[in-house]
Amino acid sequence: MKTLWKITLGGLLLAALSSAWAEQPLGCVEVTVGGYKAPNYDCLSQQMGNNPDGAAAAQKNQEALSMPVYKRPPNQVGLATPAATSTRMGNTFGTSVKPQRPPN
């Protein structure tokens, strides 16, 4: 009877430990082959994709990219604006091709 009790108790303990082990989130596994590390990119993508603000940020990115280039402001496209050029050239803006430099 004691043996049966020990087997039953051991089985219940093993079942409880295995269910607790299964509930814990598994970490990402990195494998080293020939001295090179090969991370599990699927696991890393899932970990990075659990950001609740990520969907809103992705939607804003898509909205920004959907605007045609010719409708974007020049500073977003990388073009020089008169204000930026005036700041860079200083008091020689419109009179010289050499920017103003402070005296040595």
Rank of each mutant, 00 (worst) to 15 (best):
V31N: 11
E23S: 10
G90M: 04
P103Q: 03
Q100W: 15
M1H: 12
Q46A: 06
K37A: 03
Q47G: 02
S19L: 15
T32M: 03
Q100S: 12
V69S: 05
R72F: 07
K6H: 07
Q47W: 06
I7C: 02
G11C: 14
R101F: 14
C43L: 03
A16H: 04
T81G: 04
A64C: 01
P102N: 13
N50Y: 10
K37S: 05
N61A: 11
V29K: 06
A38G: 04
L9T: 09
E23A: 12
N104A: 14
A16M: 11
T81P: 08
L65I: 04
Y36F: 08
S86T: 04
I7Q: 02
S19Y: 12
A84V: 08
A56C: 04
T81S: 10
P39A: 01
V97R: 07
K6G: 05
A15E: 07
V69M: 10
P73S: 01
R88P: 00
G35I: 08
K37I: 07
P68R: 02
V77Q: 07
G90S: 02
A58D: 06
Y36G: 04
A22D: 12
K2N: 14
S86A: 09
V69A: 11
A64I: 02
E63T: 07
W5A: 14
M67I: 14
L26Q: 11
M48Q: 11
P73R: 03
A22T: 15
S66P: 00
S45G: 08
S18R: 13
Q46C: 01
N61G: 03
L12H: 07
N51E: 01
T85G: 03
T92G: 00
L79K: 13
T3G: 07
P52S: 01
M48K: 13
A22M: 14
C28I: 02
A64P: 00
N104Y: 15
T92P: 02
A22L: 15
P82Y: 10
W5D: 09
G34P: 08
M1S: 13
Y36C: 08
P82I: 12
S66Y: 02
M48F: 10
V77E: 04
L4G: 14
Q59G: 00
Y41K: 10
A15I: 15
L26D: 06
N40E: 05
N75Y: 10
S19G: 12
Q76E: 10
A58F: 05
P39V: 00
A80C: 09
L79M: 12
P102D: 09
S18C: 14
G27S: 11
G11M: 15
A80V: 06
P82V: 14
T81I: 09
K60H: 07
L9V: 12
S86N: 04
L12E: 07
P103Y: 09
N75K: 02
M1D: 14
P102T: 07
P74W: 02
K6N: 13
